[in-house]
Each structure stands twice: as structure tokens, then as C-alpha cells.
Simulated scan of single mutants.
Amino acid sequence: MPIDAAKALAAEPRKGNIAWDHKDIQLYHLGLGAGTSPNNPGAATDPDELRYTLESKLHVLPSFATVAGAGMAMMGGLAAPGIEVNLANVLHGSQSIELHRPIPVKGEAASTATVAAVYDKGKAAVIVLRTEVADADGPLWTSDASIFVRGEGGFGGDRGPSVKAEQPERAPDRVEERKIREEQALLYRLSGDWNPLHADPEFAKLAGFDQPILHGLCSYGMTLKAVVDTVLDGDVSRVRAYRTRFAGIVFPGETLRIRMWQEPGRVLVTVSAADRDDAPVLADTVVEHG
């Protein structure tokens, strides 16, 4: 059987060291579209964007945790004992991050990756890959990536929880739009996701798409940036946790429509492709904050 859940869950943690500095942070932020005014992309650099792009003012958007160390923890998890899957059948189903304290601009840290859960969805399996990162001062973040593997269910395991963020019945408190630049996927992939699906038109056609698609984690980062900039007064240190479910694709050149509902201690979010009749992009999205 390609997935041996018991063996995967009992496997020794995979440990490694990661490091980053201001150049990694700046490249990641630029890959999210930082540096220009969100509402006037052709204008000169917005002074508020310098906190994402200028080393003397730099802070770190918490979603950087998904690419720190070139984001290899997730792919390493798919090589864990008990897991043998065809990468063509793998989809990134959801992503969550819990921040223990703000991420420093320069850091060296130890990364510990485990298979936290394996769920049986019938026609598919879901593998939860957990990464815990700590530096000399203690824990920094815990990241969970849920990986959906088509055709690998039916082994009699637990179906797992259904995590839903109930959307309020009222109109959103804020609606923001963020334009995706035509070359944005080419820039974002330099932070570590080299999948040609996001760059090569011929490869994208083989995968069933008319053109390369944007990385789901790029939409994830763009959405958090929009919430931080508009609801959290630009203060990344207020973010406590952030989770989403990847509900659909988006193409470079399109526009993300980000709807936000503010509640005590959290912001509920939905993200859609404004150019395609609000086709869903991110769902069950929550930013917890202090």
C-alpha cells in the first residue's frame, strides 16, 4: 500500500537547520507584489511599502514561514517512511501557521518535521505535515500543510476533522482588490517553489491549464499582507495565527478580491478571482490577531 499511516506517524522526526536574511525576506515580499501602491500599481513606490522592501525599515510578514529554508519541509515530508505517492496526484489542500513570536529579519533556526496525521477521505488521503521551527531564543512558529493525495484513500483510517470558518451573513467590513502582475509567478518561484506549472506554458497545458497558474501560497501571502495593511495597521507582530483552505486557482494578470469580516481577535476572509465571476481561490480563511 503506497501509504502506511501507522509507519508514517511513528517515523522519527526529520530535523535540519535553516537560515535566512534580509535578502530572502525582501525577495519573498516582492514576490507577493510588495513595493507598489495596491490601489495604484503604476505609481511610484508607496512609502508604506518600504517596511516590506527596504532593509533599514524591514519587518517580516508571518507567511514567510512557508518559504523559510526554501520551503523544503513540505516536500521532505512526502518522502517520509510509509509514504510513497505519485506527485502528479498531490494537491496542497490547506495551510496554517501559528506564530510564537515575530519572525526576525535575520535568523538561524532548527526545523523539525513530522507527519502529524493521515486521514482517509475515501477516494483520497490527506497527509498533515507539521513543521516546528525554533532558534536559540525558543520556538518561532508551527506550520501545518495538509496535502491531498488523489487515489490513495480507502485504507480504513479516520476521516479527520472538518474545519470550517462560518462566513457571517452580513456584508463584509472591507473588500480589497489586489492585482497580480503578469510576471509575479516567475518572481515568487525564486523563493523556493520551482514547479514548472507556475512558469512553463507547455507544462501547464499537460496539467490541464491554458497557461501557468499562480502559486497557492503566493495568494496566501498576498491575502495576509492585505489584512495586515488594512485591518492591523501594518503591524505584522499582531498576527497570532493564519489558516486557509485552497479552493481554486488564479492566473497571473488577474485580480484577487479579498472580503474581510472583523470579529474580536480575528478576521474572517474569503478570496476570489474578480475576473472570473468571483471564482473561489481561498476559503475558510482566518487571521487571528492580538
Rank of each mutant, 00 (worst) to 15 (best):
A5W: 01
A5K: 03
A8Y: 04
R14M: 12
G16H: 09
H22N: 14
L32C: 11
T36L: 04
G42S: 10
P47A: 05
L58R: 08
H59G: 13
T66F: 03
A68F: 03
M72D: 05
A73S: 13
P81G: 05
E84A: 13
N86R: 09
Q95R: 09
K106P: 09
E108M: 09
A113C: 11
A117V: 00
Y119I: 00
Y119T: 01
D120S: 04
G122S: 01
A134H: 07
A134R: 12
A136F: 00
D137K: 15
R150C: 00
G156N: 02
S162L: 08
V163A: 10
P168C: 04
I180D: 04
E182G: 05
L187G: 02
L187S: 05
D193W: 11
A199S: 15
E202R: 14
F203T: 13
D210R: 15
I213C: 06
G221S: 06
V227I: 15
V228C: 14
D233G: 10
D233N: 13
V236A: 10
S237R: 14
S237D: 13
R240W: 01
R243T: 07
F246S: 04
R257E: 13
I258A: 02
I258D: 01
R259V: 03
Q262A: 15
P264W: 05
V271K: 04
R276V: 14
D278G: 09
A279K: 15
L282N: 08
E288Q: 10
